[in-house]
Write a protein that binds this DNA or RNA. Sequence first.
DNA 1: AGGACTTCCTGTCGTTCTGACAAAAAGCTA
DNA 2: TAGCTTTTTGTCAGAACGACAGGAAGTCCT
Lengths: 231, 231
Amino acid sequence: MPDDPWQPPRILLAVDLVILTLRDARLHVLLVERGIDPFLGALALPGGFLRDEHEDIEVAARRELSEEAGLSDVHLEPLAVYGEPGRDPRGRVVSVAYLAIAPRLPEPVAGTDAANASWIPVDDALAPGAKLAFDHRRIVIDGVERARVKLEHTALATAFCAESFTISELQQVYEAVWDVRLDPRNFYRKVQGARGFIVADGPMRKTPNGRPARLFRAGPIHVLNPPMTRP
Amino acid sequence: MPDDPWQPPRILLAVDLVILTLRDARLHVLLVERGIDPFLGALALPGGFLRDEHEDIEVAARRELSEEAGLSDVHLEPLAVYGEPGRDPRGRVVSVAYLAIAPRLPEPVAGTDAANASWIPVDDALAPGAKLAFDHRRIVIDGVERARVKLEHTALATAFCAESFTISELQQVYEAVWDVRLDPRNFYRKVQGARGFIVADGPMRKTPNGRPARLFRAGPIHVLNPPMTRP
DNA sequence: AGGACTTCCTGTCGTTCTGACAAAAAGCTA
DNA sequence: TAGCTTTTTGTCAGAACGACAGGAAGTCCT
């Protein structure tokens, strides 16, 4: 067999997005109702195929983030690859999943394109009865777990907050993502002790009721030292 | 535009392997000398394209692990995806990189297939003068960094050791991967304190010189509590 | 105006964890 | 037996952590 006519197989490459945010102290994920055939009508993660052979994968992820969710300038990081042969009935589709974290501000899903997108509480999306298209249930689980782990030793929590935030708002992020209750006094001490995590914003304050809280911004540090410890 | 003739682009999917091991207290990575055209003669990570359209990606990784390195039954985990458009001159190649950890035992590279594979100290492979094919330098860096991080809060270090090992052998793993010196007394206490990390093996011992050391096996736990802390 | 209430922020206290070091234990070699 | 090496068991002070008390600074209600 001197000349081998073997050619590597060609694959369809897709991107899927796990977009997490906080709404009234609960963790939500953005899901869209599918309008085309495989799993028509079922809930699925936003995503799609590469536009053409030259599009970068992360560029495609940001494009879908903008097209399907109306979001830009949010935290975005690669999550994992899902390429099991039977995962898509249309053929061999390998999907690169990304994890995106959006601040709580964009309350209603911006409606330029697919307005059939909606924020679903993660607990509901993963409830035993809930059915997600493809292997998206597994992808959501992996995305949430990634967020939980990264909250421990990186400054990812600030990506859930607006540019200015209070320490108790930051605490709500940890409580919602970890699904635990934390002591405000110890949390305050811990967060202040991790230098570079948060820095004081203007000495302004804001207040619905109770004593006004100081405002902070995300600091320059991305890796927490010492890390936050989950109970 | 009611019917859109657009078709998603088709991509070449490859797997690349960062295989790490310890040889005389230094971290090594397995590299092969390329025998075909792109980057012919340069050092590269073992890897290759999917065999056919139905091969699972991790199965392909284990196949390459066996074909190009003669290894089986080693720790293997997904590392990341590398799909930048220009990374392979042959076309749009998206590569799924895996991280493999091999115990120190298989000293010479098993020579069934490609005997042009060799263990290279990571320091040499990443030295400023060294040239690796494609973007494999970046992949090696990411693989080593992944190993460093996972050593902190998982039991990954035991994957570098044989089935039975001493605590000082385990310490050498941490010292080589982290490139630090650790206090044997504190390391001993720390490792013993993380329950489930290591369990006593037969009360046997072994000894080149010095007091004989107790033997341990990897415990049932994969996540360390408390974690190992890097100085 | 003056409490009542809410939330934010600063401390305290005892336990646990950590890093630096001492010293005994258990082999080998000469 | 003395000397060397390496493993194992302790000790001790300082840092980190969980649980909790209490003052500070606002709003709301009467």
